[in-house]
Amino acid sequence: MQVPASFEYRRASSVEDALAQLERFGEEARVIAGGHSLLPMMKLRLARPGLLVDINDLHELDYVRLEGDELCVGALTRHRELLESELVGRLFPIFHDAERVIADPPVRNRGTIGGSLCQADPAEDLSAVCAAVRAVAVVLGGGGRRRVPMAEFYRGPYETDVGTGEMLVEIRVPVVPGGGSAYEKVERKTGDWAIAAAGAALAVVDGRIASPGIGLAAVGVSPVGYRRAEEALAGREPSAEVFAEAGRIAAEDCDPVTDTRGTAAYKRHLAGELTERALRRAAERAGRPVAAA
């Protein structure tokens, strides 16, 4: 039987209350949202917080809405709510592509977008999605509210820019007119973590690619860092060749390791192939399908 080590538990009654607890207990304290990454880690003693601050009552962090030209998602929004949101599916189908293959329905009933991003597991699908759509994390703490782009949010595996006494409260995604997005994942079996996965977003403005974004899961220390591939897309006319080139660069720039899910070489191959496929599907959704190479 796996049981976590002892800890204290407080249920936060407001965001301010949660922050006060986090501030007071410092390094010892951890937020618990869905608990579907944290509790398994605590059972294995990979995490041993002295205090859990439960934010599940903070319904003010559970929303999906459009504010101006940004899609705003509260940190406590569950996987299932993202999957069922018509607004999310319409503006960013990449979220629905990913949510359909993240874990399974009972896990999706609990797991949250905030927990997914803060877990910063290199294989986390929503991290790659948020990287591709150039999301901005809104982090709140004693020092105030900070907007952190995904490129700066990830400090490495299991490490984010969210400091002691802070919490992630919102994810904001810029809505790009004429945009399309898609996610492609290869896994061993239904509901499993990715062997490799790729997210892509782009817009087509005056026949040329604008605001390209690429995020990869499970093939490096974090989902970000594909600037070279993005630069190979920006300003070009969408075509099978351009997408293949971006895929080739992404495969070059990723850094997979061999594990039980596959060899590094296989994952690198997938990274390129899935990037290319995601780009093609994103272009199709942006209203600019390209013919096969």
Partner: peptide, 29 residues
């Protein structure tokens, strides 16, 4: 499994299926 993988521990929490090996009793309070 105790690791939130097998799903045999599924119960309904406020009407929705959850894996009860990965929910603290205090969270269900």
């Amino acid at each position: 499994c105790d690791t939130s993988n097998c799903g045999t521990c599924v119960v309904l929490l406020d009407g929705e299926p959850v894996k009860s090996c990965t929910v603290l009793a205090v969270m269900a309070d």
